[in-house]
Amino acid sequence: MATGGRRGAAAAPLLVAVAALLLGAAGHLYPGEVCPGMDIRNNLTRLHELENCSVIEGHLQILLMFKTRPEDFRDLSFPKLIMITDYLLLFRVYGLESLKDLFPNLTVIRGSRLFFNYALVIFEMVHLKELGLYNLMNITRGSVRIEKNNELCYLATIDWSRILDSVEDNYIVLNKDDNEECGDICPGTAKGKTNCPATVINGQFVERCWTHSHCQKVCPTICKSHGCTAEGLCCHSECLGNCSQPDDPTKCVACRNFYLDGRCVETCPPPYYHFQDWRCVNFSFCQDLHHKCKNSRRQGCHQYVIHNNKCIPECPSGYTMNSSNLLCTPCLGPCPKVCHLLEGEKTIDSVTSAQELRGCTVINGSLIINIRGGNNLAAELEANLGLIEEISGYLKIRRSYALVSLSFFRKLRLIRGETLEIGNYSFYALDNQNLRQLWDWSKHNLTITQGKLFFHYNPKLCLSEIHKMEEVSGTKGRQERNDIALKTNGDQASCENELLKFSYIRTSFDKI
């Protein structure tokens, strides 16, 4: 039985969820670079991206490699990797027998973001014989899940209580170790020597080791999670996991709180800001991140802002960003909400898709409305799209047979046209069989910064309504002859009103 693990408890099935942008060198404390989270699957090609990484700022997932063999891993080693800020997950990587050479110096898994409450997941690794993470000293947050690894031993010899604050939620089941077939031998045991430290858990006094050649490092209890030197002297209180010299914040392997210019500090002093819960960055760093993602459509890219001495992905609820200094300031009234469309555009074809934009005031991208039916549609669209004030790209209304009016965009005031449909149009209306009105132009103002209007096959939309939009939106004169079809717009509506004058002759039985 794995020490510190839980057996036999019912657990939810383990679901495996399925960018080499360097964020800056980590400095003297770390020998390499800070790398983003990685999802490495199918083959070993991307694994080489770990070569210079000291910190993975995010998670590391290595999974679904069915053609790899043990010899493929023999020359692979990433000794610079010290810390993973989120979680480490391995799933069905064939041929991998140990992690001792792959990650010989991995010391800390912070667990800032977890995989279903777990910071370390080893699942269905069919050839893994031992973990071998002999320098792993601290899992700051989260638990361990090690399950269905039929060859995995050296679990009962690990004292997880020396690595985690609590072992109650560890789930370590259905491994070879369960069948008591392992016969784990710690260093020196074969020669009758006791080389590794022994600890007591559940009444068992057991030597602690990761492999037959690597003991588990056990520091004096007084050192807590700070770690200790090879001689057993406690590291500085700002260290986490390990250090090369005692009581020196510049000799830590990793930091308990924050890293700044080669030393570990309790908090980031001005003019620095907390970033990702582990390091200090200056304003320029946060500003660069903001600008890199301002026009990016890459998933996970955030326009970072500053709030409460932190550089964070977005302002919290009730705050909006001051564009001059990136500071989050309290909103006066309802907060603006910028919604970034991942692929640059979004099609609204149902109430469900409209709900995804609920509360958005600025759309960074283009909207395509293609709704053919739905219950209580006008009210639903207004509830979900009615706060949109600005669209950076274009607005396209296409084959939306259920629409009679666009009044559900009740606050839309600006279409920038930074991206144009077919390279020309910022407003595009095609084949809307029941569209009769755009907006009530006596109450609604709309500016279209650039781009043209396109109207074709809107049989109940009168040309007068379209011409009014040209005047109000500032697009009059931009359109070419064929942009607004004269014969297919309003051709099934009563669009022309003329005053009919009647004269009559009164007659009676005795007068003409």
Results as ranks from 00 to 15, higher is better:
L29W: 09
P31G: 14
P31S: 12
P31F: 11
E33I: 12
P36E: 06
G37C: 04
M38N: 10
M38V: 04
I40V: 14
R41I: 00
R41A: 00
N42W: 01
N43W: 15
R46Q: 02
L50E: 01
L50S: 00
L50H: 00
N52G: 11
V55P: 02
I56T: 03
G58T: 01
L60F: 00
L60Q: 00
Q61I: 02
I62L: 06
I62F: 04
L63M: 03
L63T: 01
K67N: 03
K67I: 02
T68V: 05
R69F: 08
P70D: 11
P70M: 12
D72T: 14
S77H: 01
S77Y: 08
K80N: 09
L81F: 00
I84T: 00
T85C: 08
T85E: 02
T85I: 05
D86L: 01
D86T: 00
D86R: 06
D86F: 00
L88P: 01
R92Q: 00
G95F: 04
G95A: 06
L96W: 00
S98M: 02
S98A: 03
K100V: 09
D101T: 13
P104N: 01
P104M: 01
P104S: 01
N105K: 11
N105I: 01
N105D: 04
N105F: 04
L106P: 01
L106S: 00
I109R: 00
I109D: 00
S112G: 08
F115A: 02
F115N: 01
F115T: 01
F115I: 00
F116R: 00
Y118Q: 05
V121K: 00
V121A: 05
I122L: 09
F123Y: 13
L128R: 03
Y134A: 06
Y134T: 05
N135T: 05
N135F: 00
I139L: 07
I139G: 00
I139C: 04
G142S: 02
S143R: 05
S143I: 04
V144C: 08
R145H: 04
R145D: 04
K148G: 00
K148D: 02
K148Q: 02
N149V: 03
N150M: 13
E151A: 13
E151K: 09
A156D: 06
A156Q: 08
T157L: 02
I158G: 02
D159T: 02
S161M: 14
R162T: 10
D165H: 08
V167C: 12
N170I: 12
L174W: 10
L174A: 11
N175S: 06
D177G: 12
D177R: 10
E180N: 13
E181P: 09
D184E: 05
I185G: 07
I185F: 15
K191E: 03
A198S: 06
V200N: 13
N202M: 10
N202T: 10
G203S: 11
Q204A: 13
E207Q: 10
R208K: 12
W210N: 05
W210T: 03
T211A: 13
S213V: 07
H214Y: 06
Q216L: 05
K217T: 02
V218A: 11
C219H: 01
T221R: 15
K224N: 07
K224E: 10
S225C: 14
H226Y: 11
G227I: 02
G232H: 09
L233E: 12
L233D: 14
H236Q: 02
H236R: 02
S237L: 07
E238M: 10
C239M: 00
L240M: 07
N242Q: 13
Q245K: 10
P246V: 04
D247S: 05
D247W: 12
D248T: 03
D248P: 00
P249K: 04
V253Y: 13
C255F: 00
C255L: 01
R256H: 08
R256M: 11
N257Y: 07
F258D: 01
F258S: 10
F258K: 00
F258C: 05
L260S: 13
L260Q: 03
D261I: 05
D261K: 10
R263D: 04
R263W: 06
C264W: 10
C264L: 00
T267E: 13
Y272W: 08
Y272L: 14
Y273D: 00
F275K: 01
D277A: 10
W278K: 00
R279Q: 12
R279L: 08
C280F: 01
F283R: 12
S284E: 14
F285P: 01
C286H: 01
Q287A: 15
Q287H: 08
Q287N: 07
D288K: 12
L289R: 14
S296E: 10
S296K: 07
S296R: 10
R298W: 14
G300T: 11
C301L: 04
C301S: 04
H302W: 11
Q303F: 13
V305Y: 05
V305S: 11
V305R: 09
I306C: 06
I306D: 11
H307Q: 07
N309E: 05
N309M: 11
N309P: 01
N309R: 13
K310Q: 09
K310N: 13
C311E: 01
P313D: 12
E314V: 05
C315V: 03
C315P: 07
S317Q: 07
S317P: 05
G318H: 05
G318R: 02
M321V: 09
M321Y: 13
S323R: 02
S323T: 09
L327G: 04
C328W: 01
T329W: 06
T329R: 07
T329P: 05
C331V: 09
C331E: 01
G333I: 14
P334N: 05
P334L: 14
C335Y: 02
C335I: 04
